[in-house]
């Protein structure tokens, strides 16, 4: 999950310290003469890519083992807890107190078995109290409904939706058509121009490929990792930056990109080729 060393070593080699320092204090390129401006458009032999992340917005569903563990711990805690001061929190004989007592008895029986705290509601008074509590419950729960933990995007398996897989980290992948007609999935990426900071290049490349209809935040100026293609391939080393999507959605800008998808880590492995996957897998979250 964490990749520090792989990012730092090539960074040092490819961007000399002097070049970075010169950029930090340089006058913006617009002020320069046209001949110099065209010179600054020259490309640097590296790429910048963005790992655009949609964070989980639902808590993880506990596994049966976790649920059993939590129930067991809650049972011990219930057995050992200090007595609850009823008279401090409830007015004596009030409806709220009756409701709390009934619910508490239910919880006790759930924790310690059906024999525990058996209730006796045979008398008319108790039946009346129960009816009143039931009515209060209906009044309070009116118009309240829990949102479901799976939604339409999950059932329809819509990979382009940002609502899918609410419990997982999702990442944006683009499908690019190469010259040979072959299609391959990759993260949004692009060139780095001479005189441009790497993290700014990453943001610009994301904007160029995925449109302006997104609020994004690049987390750090440091690259989080690097992918170096095989020695015989023509492609260049790619530096990755982590970013979050806060609002909006992708609008594809280039004809070379045929589609996009929001994928979990395991799905990325299925979509990408083995060599690319080996380079990027440690930058992705397992959660």
């Amino acid at each position: 999950m964490f990749t520090l060393n792989s990012a730092s070593a090539p960074c040092r080699r490819l961007i000399s310290k002097r070049a970075v320092r010169a950029l930090a204090t340089e006058v913006p390129a617009q002020a320069a003469a046209p001949s110099e401006a065209s010179k600054s458009k020259a490309k640097v032999p590296i790429n910048a890519a963005v790992i655009l992340n949609r964070s989980p917005f639902l808590t993880k569903t506990p596994t049966p083992f976790e649920r059993a563990y939590y129930a067991y711990q809650a049972r011990i805690r219930r057995a050992l807890h200090n007595p609850f001061p009823y008279d401090f929190y409830f007015k004596q004989g009030s409806l709220l107190e009756t409701r709390f007592n009934m619910e508490e008895r239910k919880r006790e029986r759930k924790a310690f078995g059906p024999d525990f705290a058996s209730e006796d509601y045979s008398s008319a008074e108790s039946a009346e109290a129960m009816a009143a509590v039931e009515m209060l419950k209906q009044q309070e729960s009116e118009g309240q409904e829990f949102a479901p933990r799976t939604n339409k995007a999950d059932t329809e398996q819509d990979l382009t939706s940002l609502d899918r897989q609410g419990q997982r980290n999702l990442y944006l992948l683009l499908q690019e058509e190469e010259g040979s007609g072959r299609k391959r999935w990759r993260f949004p990426q692009g060139d780095v121009e001479k005189g441009e900071l790497l993290h700014q290049a990453a943001q610009r490349d994301l904007h160029d490929e995925c449109g302006a209809n997104m609020d994004t935040w690049v987390v750090s100026r440091n690259p989080i990792g690097v992918h170096r293609p095989a020695a015989d391939s023509a492609s260049q080393p790619t530096f990755f930056f982590k970013a979050h999507i806060l609002a909006g959605q992708v609008q594809l800008q280039s004809s070379r990109i045929s589609s996009f998808a929001w994928l979990t880590k395991e799905e990325i492995q299925k979509h990408t080729d083995a060599e690319y996957w080996e380079g990027v897998k440690d930058m992705l979250s397992d959660y």
Binding site: A68, R75, G113, D115
Partner: peptide
Amino acid sequence: SVTRFGRA
């Protein structure tokens, strides 16, 4: 059930 206690 994994969360319910049967009988002591």
